[in-house]
């Protein structure tokens, strides 16, 4: 038996997971998403990351970005390293891709904001 806190929504249900492999049962969840979370958490925990990339814009030195879908929890720091390699020199709109298919995880790193569209460039 494993106890988990569901992180899907702010409600934060306390989940109880019994069994393993194909016969996992989840209790304590208030909705279906909780069950899915628990199963995923037991087999292959996934997380999103939200961070920033550097830019060359003096008044917006960083742009917030996130992954377009969850990535394996144990790849978080690998993806962070990839994101740190980037410096944006051109404006990127909200939702636009900053890194495509990061580390072959079939997930893009995308912009969270239109902020750079309004910024003056260096010089």
């Amino acid at each position: 038996m494993t106890e988990l806190t569901c992180i899907v929504c702010p409600r934060g249900c306390s989940l109880r997971v019994d069994g393993e492999g194909d016969s996992i049962t989840v209790t304590g969840n208030a909705c279906k998403r909780g069950e899915a979370f628990a199963v995923s958490e037991m087999l292959h925990p996934m997380r999103t990351i939200c961070t920033t990339v550097r830019t060359s814009f003096p008044d917006a030195p960083v742009l917030p970005v996130r992954v377009s879908a969850e990535i394996p929890k144990d790849r978080i720091f690998d993806v962070m390293r990839e994101i740190k390699k980037v410096t944006l020199t051109k404006p990127v709109a909200r939702g636009e891709t900053v890194i495509e298919n990061v580390l072959g995880l079939s997930v893009n790193v995308i912009s969270e904001s239109d902020l750079l569209l309004h910024e003056k460039r260096e010089g």
């Binding site: 999103t48 939200c50 917030p64 909200r94 969270e112 902020l115």
Partner: peptide, 19 residues
């Protein structure tokens, strides 16, 4: 607030603060 988790009640999706 660049982290996600905003808007679940309203939009049914996990948005970041800027989004």
């Amino acid at each position: 607030c660049i982290h996600d988790g905003f808007g679940l009640v309203r939009f049914g999706e996990k948005l970041s603060g800027p989004e």
